[in-house]
């Protein structure tokens, strides 16, 4: 028994190393940097230690607003992805044969094509003279073109388009994990399709929805290209702010401080989310 445990531990070493190398160390580097001082002529910041980067963040409401905007965009996008992604995921899991393959390819394709290509494509679609506006005006829904680009709406559309596949795949996974027998049992006990969906399928895929939500939310927090391009440089989010500070102004301490504050906020958000009834404790009893 002891031996097998040791073996299992040994198998974890590569993963642990990767994790430490890619996540833990950079995290502490950034944490350390956030208390240093930017030195002119050097990318690497230096002492004296200071909390001025943190003070600067809260100096006025600009950066808190950037963070707030990012959180809001991310939550909104994740929410929209749930609403749009769930039915699609459900439909695909119920599809069969060739048609299912086609649908899967359609979902996965955007993931392979790269963020920039997609975003540029979307940029073309969403311009005030682009096909979306033309269609809406042709259909009589709009009288005048609406400017999507450079607005939060445009950014949310872009983020949703970019990250919806993650939601669909995660939810699909969860729905597929429900044994057929369980659904048949519901049928058998007298549940019609609607009842079965809301009482069995939906609750049992809840963890998948939660996972998808977290995934999309996290991706949105990190997004840079989409807000930059579709926001036309007007929608400042954490990604663009950190890029500006770190890569253009070489202000790693401040960029690190923004990142630390973001991480802290995300932890708080998830801690709060975990305490909500029906999300935390009970899941354990079901899945364990």
């Amino acid at each position: 028994m002891k031996k097998s445990v040791n073996k299992a531990n040994a198998l974890l070493i590569p993963l642990t190393l990767v994790f430490v190398l890619l996540f833990i160390i950079p995290f502490f580097v950034l944490f350390y940097y956030s208390f240093l001082t930017r030195s002119s002529g050097q990318v690497v910041p230096s002492t004296p230690y200071t909390v001025s980067s943190y003070l600067r963040f809260f100096e006025d409401s600009y950066y808190p607003r950037v963070v707030g905007r990012t959180l809001w965009l991310s939550l909104l996008t994740a929410g929209i992805c749930v609403v749009l992604g769930y039915p699609v995921a459900y439909y695909i899991t119920k599809a069969r044969g060739y048609w299912k393959t086609v649908l899967m390819v359609v979902v996965i394709l955007p993931l392979v094509s790269g963020v920039i290509t997609q975003t540029l494509g979307l940029y073309g679609m969403l311009t005030s003279y682009g096909p979306v506006n033309n269609f809406l005006m042709w259909a009589g829904i709009l009288k005048e073109p609406v400017e999507f680009l450079g607005t939060t709406t445009g950014v949310v559309i872009g983020l949703t388009q970019g990250f919806l596949p993650y939601m669909i795949l995660t939810v699909m996974n969860a729905i597929q994990a429900i044994p057929d027998n369980v659904l048949e049992a519901a049928d058998n006990l007298g549940a019609n399709g609607v009842q079965r969906f809301f009482l069995i399928t939906l609750p049992l895929s809840k963890t998948g929805v939660a996972a998808g939500f977290v995934l999309v939310f996290g991706c949105c927090l990190n997004s840079y290209t989409t807000p930059l391009l579709l926001g036309r440089g007007k929608i400042s989010v954490i990604g663009t702010a950190i890029y500006q500070q770190a890569m253009e102004l070489y202000n790693w301490p401040f960029a690190s401080a923004i990142a630390m504050i973001l991480i802290a906020l995300v932890l708080v958000v998830f801690a709060l989310g975990n305490t909500l009834p029906g999300v935390g404790g009970r899941k354990k009893a079901v899945s364990g």
């Binding site: 940029y123 311009t127 005030s128 003279y129 680009l149 450079g150 930059l228 391009l229 036309r232 440089g233 007007k234």
Partner: peptide, 16 residues
Amino acid sequence: PLFYNDLDELFLEMKQ
């Protein structure tokens, strides 16, 4: 109307 980071984008919108 735009803060450009790419000239393609700028010229496209100038044309439009």
